[in-house]
Write a protein that binds this DNA or RNA. Sequence first.
RNA 1: GGACCCUUAGCUCAGCUGGUUAGAGCGUACGAUUCACAUUCGUAAGGUCGCUGGUUCGAUUCCAGCAGGGUCCACCA
Length: 784
Amino acid sequence: MQKRDTEKNKSKTEEIPKAYDSNAEMEMYELWEQSGAFNPDNAKTGQKPFVMTLPPPNANDKLHVGHVCGYSFEDTMGRYNRMKGRPTLLLPGKDHAGIQTEAVFTRVLREKGIDKWKMGREEFYRQCYDYCIENSKHARAQERRIGLSADWSREKFTLDPKLTEVIYETFYKMLEEKLIYRGKYIVNQCVYCRTALANVDTEHKEKSGIFAYIRYPLADKSGGRTDKSGKHVTVATTRPETMLGDTAVAVNPKDKRYKDLIGKQVELPLTGRTIPVIADREVDETVGTGALKVTPAHSAIDFKIGLRHKLAVVNVIGADGKMTDEAPEKYRGMNVIECREAVLEDLKAGGYLEKVEEIMHEVLVCERCGHDIEQIISNQWFADVKDLAGRAKKALDDKKIRIYPHSQERVLSGWFKNIEPWCISRQLWWGHRIPVWYCGSKALYDWLQDNPGKTAKDYEEVTGKKANGCGIVIPGANTPKKCPKCAGARLEPEQDVFDTWFSSGQWPFSTLGGPGAPDYETYYPTDVMENARDILFFWDAREIMLGLYRTNTLPFHTIYLHGWILAADGTKMSKSRGNGVPPEELFEKYGSDAVRLWFYTDTLPGQNTPIREEKLKGTRNFVNKIWNASRYVMMQTADLPEADRADLSGKIAHYLEKFESSDDDWIVELRNTAQTITKHIDTFRFNLAVEEVREYFWHVFCDKRIEETKQLLQEKPADRIDYLARLIAMLAMQMKLIHPFAPFVTERVWQTLRSYGLLVHEDELLMTARWPVPSTYSKKEAKQ
RNA sequence: GGACCCUUAGCUCAGCUGGUUAGAGCGUACGAUUCACAUUCGUAAGGUCGCUGGUUCGAUUCCAGCAGGGUCCACCA
């Protein structure tokens, strides 16, 4: 009987493979998923939930290494808190990513020879939706592969009807409170994407350009043509074509050179117009010639000067980047580059061009497509977020929200301080349509806004167009039957969509159903927001503001910003460079656990790290070490008769139960290590936690305790069961400590231990096992 | 123009609130290994902790300045 058992167990041990097979990781994932442990509703404790709404990757593409890096940190926090007994919700999702997806899918269509404009909005939307749903499948597989313990039953897409409803409610509320309004301002226009953009959607890029010095001759006293004296004022500009829209020349009032010119008229070459010379304190005497050509329609600073001096506005560049009908006939329809050359040529021919310098300067480009931004005046929807930003700033300054790294707190605070109205409308098809209707027409509404005090009747008289309504705006998702004010039935829907960040800024509560919904009541506010530094302003900032607005609560108390992963040569990974490393390649070569372990040590907050294959080999070796040490320990039990095995199992349980109070030297040492690890996780120092884990497991447990146990077993064979029990208990404890970082290998060890009947009183799954030590640091300490 | 970060061994980086011989991984050199693991083990070499001042009994750690690298913000036409 005893012999048969021995043989049975021996053959069982031989089944344990010699090297850890990371390709079998997904077997463990299936185990977790089937258990229902990802869903916090199944948690049995009454503790406060731990919640993270995971930043949704763009639905239009596969994940890159940066995404799986973020997921690794998110999952570690989730698993740790779940083991601490908190019902844990990691809520996954995908983002429709408005402008970017529209650009990507437009290109996809173009490659197939399909023109988006011919296809039409509805069909485009339908196909783009399918495209995103299809692409999301791939991302979802990658999310599982990295081990993300997310609640898939709650997965969301930003365009889901329920989320849309919540977002619309926010809009209606802000509209009613006049925090959202439609207005005519100078905005950034990407003529390539054909839409207005918020400041944050643009970036500065150094490019070579020209600095043209242009003479504006003094007009004679009658306001007519050139003064015979030949006097002139020279302006310098990088954008000569915009001179066609100039309505003044501004000089600093203190500038002696131009003192006499203030109030006089100068001739604007090529246009037949004359414009005044004005004095404005914002003009910098040291730049260029000290005389600034003022183009209110196409420069933000000029727009402001224009408002101050009530200057006329001449729109010469259209939303499509072509010269408008307000430009002299010759230039109409040209794009800005063509027009620039034509203007320079004509200025030269007329003797107005003094000189042209080649310079390097910063230009605004579209954050998504890289094309030059045009500043134009147009009617857009704006959110006045000044008050919200003030509240957000206060919360930040009061340390109600902590950012890792802390240095970003001041950066974000400064951003809140200098906030400007946020342009939330985009002239795109892909996104949430702004839910308003115009009585009569949008044109009527905008005309009435531009002409305060006027009526629809005035509109008809002035423009010669039919008003067809009273020109009010009617909020609502569905077509209203008639105008509530004038009962008119001619209602024009708004075509613009929301800025993507208006919807993703509501992610922490929109995904939970919004205020009042059961999930919201249970799981809001969330705890930690984890993402990369590059979307701090886009995303975290908006979440704080809109969270405060809609819920009167901060949506989370901590922002953890993981570092960037660069290509091996230290440059940014990018598709165009072709130096990106697909996550799959890393998973296959090293296994998910090894990839995760590398992230924790190298992609620290505020740090950019090149991908290092040697390091991944190192972490893979560590994973294998975990496996082999466990394999050895388990093998020691293989030849035990059943009776001894039961004895062993009981003693292991005893060690585990007494873990917090034991005075056994080895256990005390492990407990201290566990406390250090706990403290590091609680203070978001994942690198130190993993260092501690590795140092202890490899160089203490393996190199010392296992080796010493080998000795003891030889010297005192009678105490064999005791020694083995201690060793196995120590192993099991460490599986718990390592699990948040390397979930797959530790779960497999756990399962193998269980299949040997060695963890009879412990949880079936390691992922729901109890964390072995409490947090010992004080709350105060953690906040510092 | 403003702000932030980085500069520590050949490489990539740790080093929390200042304190005995400054650490890790990888790499290098030499050696071990019929033992759970060659995805192992041992030993060793290798650093004026960017530079210059300051605070201190004592600074890689705090402060100031400088140099180099990186990032972000910004309406220099």
